[in-house]
């Protein structure tokens, strides 16, 4: 065990920055974050990096490794050849604060714009009854660790800053889907997704699903079903009538 890896690390701030080359020792079984930490403890004590659990559970150490949005704590060094150059850069869809740390406040802002779960008024705490099969669909989306890699990779905002206003992004489409599929939620989430959060702007290229470290089927299980039901609702005259009279949730 033990070799020197060639790391190219982005250093800089919101104004300017560049890639710096470092040779860093790698131990057996290590991940990219270990190597970044070694660099911090040796050559670059002021290298900024955000991390926390180091076990793929908190979603803090998101960055781009050789251009691919990844968790640094879950990217094993042995997935690269020993002589391969490994480039680590901050999330590109968000403003840089310093080095590998990006300003992800966009996501917290969007989170606040989605109305919270609203349970039935007539059920008291302890009276909720739901079947496992019914909660399972939403549970898949609640596995989300908010690493925001899906948000980073989504080309609707990655290359189009101007879309950020109208588009909440894949993380929040699964939040909306989770609430929509929650057996006891009382609000209409589909219309909200379409009209307030830009669901229609997604053209299902599945890039989000590809980078999700929790392997949530964002596109297939959340976005596509939501899109289908938005369409059903829009064009189904009975649903339209029901909604117009304003009595109940469409489904």
């Amino acid at each position: 065990m033990g070799y020197l890896a060639s790391m190219r690390i982005w250093r800089g701030n919101s104004e300017a920055g560049q890639l710096e080359n470092h040779k860093v020792e790698v131990g057996e079984g290590e991940v990219v974050l270990d190597v970044i930490h070694r660099l911090q403890a040796t050559e670059a004590p002021d290298l900024a990096v955000r991390w926390n659990c180091k076990a793929g559970k908190c979603g803090s150490c998101s960055a781009e490794i050789n251009g691919k949005p990844s968790l640094m704590c879950m990217t094993r060094m042995n997935t690269f050849a020993e002589d391969e150059e490994i480039t680590v850069t901050p999330l590109r869809a968000f403003p840089v604060i310093k080095d590998l740390v990006a300003d992800v406040s966009f996501n917290y802002k969007k989170a606040r714009e989605i109305p919270a779960f609203k349970g039935p008024e007539n059920l008291k705490p302890g009276e909720y009854r739901m079947e496992q099969i019914d909660v399972q669909r939403s549970q898949e989306f609640r596995k989300c660790i908010e690493c925001f890699l899906c948000q980073d990779t989504c080309h609707v905002i990655r290359d189009h800053e101007e879309n950020k206003e109208a588009f909440a992004g894949p993380r929040f489409f699964i939040r909306l889907a989770e609430l929509d599929m929650h057996p006891l939620d009382q609000l209409d989430r589909k219309r909200d997704a379409q009209e307030e959060h830009g669901l229609g702007m997604c053209n299902i290229t599945k890039c989000c699903t590809a980078v999700c470290p929790e392997h949530i089927k964002i596109t297939d299980n959340a976005i596509i079903p939501m899109k289908e039901r938005v369409v059903d609702e829009k064009y189904d005259p009975l649903v339209w009538l029901g909604r117009t009279i304003g009595r109940r949730k469409a489904d």
Binding site: F117, Y128, M130, Q132, V135, S138, Q139, R142, H182, D185
Partner: peptide, 8 residues
């Protein structure tokens, strides 16, 4: 009531 979904 806050929206948690436990196994059933």
């Amino acid at each position: 009531t806050y929206g948690a979904l436990f196994d059933r």
